[in-house]
Amino acid sequence: MPTLPFRTGSLLTFAVLSLAVSACSDRAQPSELSAPRESSTPAAAIEQPRSSAERLGVQAPPAAAPNATNASNGAPTSGGNGALKWELPAGWSELAPTSMRVANFRVAGDERAECYLTFLAGDGGGLAANIQRWRTQMGQGPLSPQEIAALPTKPMLGGEAVLVDFAGSFSGMGGGGKIEDARLVGLLLVGPQGAAFLKMTGPASTLAGQVDAFLALAASLRN
């Protein structure tokens, strides 16, 4: 009677058993919950409904500042919105913050030139995505990862923020207020704990003399 070689028989048996046992591990759905048992969770934790943000300990974005303006005509003046403080550059004026703009400024020299600070939770979408979004707003193509990695940094809010400076035709969010021959100067500080963006846009001729003031404002931001 012909027989399989001894080793072949062993391996065959093992393979068949492997398939049989692994096939038994599939689970069916739906699943029944366990039988009820008394819980140590206090009833008060269930009877008092809470919002998701409250339960999960998520902070709302920084509160909006009072709806007031402050202008600096000569030397830089101190400003702030309670949570943040800064040195307002000469000739700049503070505008009322909005739901997204924690600090909001008009840049000296042109009513169309503006600068504002935004905070976002987490990485705010990431450094590269925000740089490319700003490039798009300036009508420019995306930067390569190597070009992004080579961007300079400047101090802001205790960290080293990435500095971008783009020229082009600016069309902001919503497409309103298009500026030809515009410039965008921005600082992006992105980390796992949060993201801060300081962005200045306006006519290139106006912003040419305001970049140093922009950087000084960034360096002056503090809690």
Partner: peptide, 17 residues
């Protein structure tokens, strides 16, 4: 994952997955 239920007597019952 626990499903919690407040009973009529105020005790909390739980079923778990």
């Amino acid at each position: 994952l626990a499903v919690l239920e407040v009973g009529d007597d105020g005790r909390v019952l739980e079923r778990v997955a």
